[in-house]
């Protein structure tokens, strides 16, 4: 049900030309997907998606709209057919690919047979953190999280360089 809502939202974003409405819809889209993550047992992901995807990303986009424009021009008509064909072909291939996927919620799927049972069985005694997601994120895969911080740091420096220079030039 939520999934169908998401699809409707994405199509609305595709159709709309007012960018303010598009940004608002993408915020709602993030919030809906956060709700979906709760029903899929991923509560940590839902928190993050609601706060970061629904909050910060929407805020950043609104700020960009304030600095640029909030109306989209009509796209040129000739551009339309080729992208649609590419998208349909890719989608058909991907659907063909899902036919080999294990059924939704199947406890015997290969993804549940490898390291996950070990994490669930040992995480509490090894890290004394009851939330397995936190234990894996901060303890077992701590280096990955450090790499993630490096990415955020780089992005932050990039944004500062791009926008800081622009502001200085405007002062001249």
């Amino acid at each position: 049900m939520l999934l169908s809502f998401l699809a409707v939202m994405a199509l609305a974003i595709l159709r709309l030309r007012n960018l303010l409405a598009v940004v608002m819809l993408s915020g709602i889209y993030s919030l809906l997907s956060a709700g979906l993550f709760v029903t899929l047992d991923a509560v940590d992901v839902a928190f993050t998606e609601a706060a970061v995807g629904g909050g910060i990303a929407t805020l950043l986009m609104l700020a960009t709209l304030a600095l640029t424009t909030d109306e989209e021009k009509r796209p040129a008509e000739r551009l339309r057919i080729a992208p649609l064909l590419v998208v349909l072909a890719t989608g058909a291939l991907l659907i063909y690919g899902t036919l080999d996927m294990p059924s939704y919620g199947d406890p015997q799927a290969p993804i549940h047979r490898h390291v996950a049972p070990r994490y669930i069985a040992e995480a509490q005694s090894e890290t004394s953190v009851p939330n397995v997601v936190t234990a894996v994120l901060a303890s077992y895969r701590g280096y990955d999280t450090m790499g993630e911080l490096a990415v955020i740091f780089t992005a932050g420096i990039g944004v500062m360089l791009l926008l800081g220079r622009a502001r200085k030039r405007r002062d001249d």
Partner: peptide, 10 residues
């Protein structure tokens, strides 16, 4: 997601 499962908090 595992059918009948819950969030991975022990």
């Amino acid at each position: 997601k595992v059918r009948g499962g819950t969030a991975p908090i022990i």
